[in-house]
Write a protein that binds this DNA or RNA. Sequence first.
DNA 1: ACTCCTTTCATACTAAAGTACTAAAATGCT
DNA 2: AGCATTTTAGTACTTTAGTATGAAAGGAGT
Lengths: 138, 138
Amino acid sequence: MKRTILIFAALIAALLILFQLSKYSYASGDASIEIIIAFIAVIFFFIGIYINKKSRTPAIDNAPQVNKKSLEQLGLSRREYEVLLEISQGLSNKEIATKLFVSESTIKTHVSNLLVKLDAKRRTQAIQKAKTMGILPN
Amino acid sequence: MKRTILIFAALIAALLILFQLSKYSYASGDASIEIIIAFIAVIFFFIGIYINKKSRTPAIDNAPQVNKKSLEQLGLSRREYEVLLEISQGLSNKEIATKLFVSESTIKTHVSNLLVKLDAKRRTQAIQKAKTMGILPN
DNA sequence: ACTCCTTTCATACTAAAGTACTAAAATGCT
DNA sequence: AGCATTTTAGTACTTTAGTATGAAAGGAGT
């Protein structure tokens, strides 16, 4: 939470600085307004990508009607919960890896950890337990 | 249904015959009443086991709030549906085999057929599909 | 800075799951 | 009684899943 505030504060500050710079440059005539605009555009393009990437790792936060208390008590990490969701959709490790842009090894690691935390021996059991705990949507 | 009626009719007939025999034997004194009683007890013991076994294969019929139309359209057999239920409870093939008193090979056969009928590649996908079809309880 | 946690990935196995046939009883229906 | 389906089971593989372990990099908090 503190991170988010700091990031946004930094963004606003950066924006103000850019505005000041653009004003100065425009007045002194040593840079065309088009270049300034393009510069700002590019920076905000990447900021947009970054913010989108951060907020699009939803997992726990944007999870719909879900028992968040149980979720936290389990100690499942974001990624683990994300993998759990894909498992409950019937995907294989390889498919999950492709979908999340990581290797199958990584998914296996997540699955192993997730099984321990859910005290399950198999992914199907993990699904069942998660459902009865109200951790999964639907 | 007809089978059940016939079986019960046969059972009642057998019971009457045993009663007649016991009466005759008791009167003629060539068999002690205890042996007759023991005989009847043993027979009804096994009948009890048989009836219990038959009625305890619930599957489709006693399935709770379940979309029976989808179920029939899928063409899932009783046993296949039974196996599907156990899969959704997170059991392994071996565990299901133990629970249903059959070999693991048999369960594998059921699972394979069930996956084809549900058009699923994995058991987890079968669970997901079955849930969205309203075929599974909960 | 240091430390904990998370995420990533790899190797090397072991254990389940699934597939493809084949085949024999049993069950159910006509 | 005969036929179709279901249930059972086996063998022989191939493919996923899951475990164990080690390791590197980055984020977050003290």
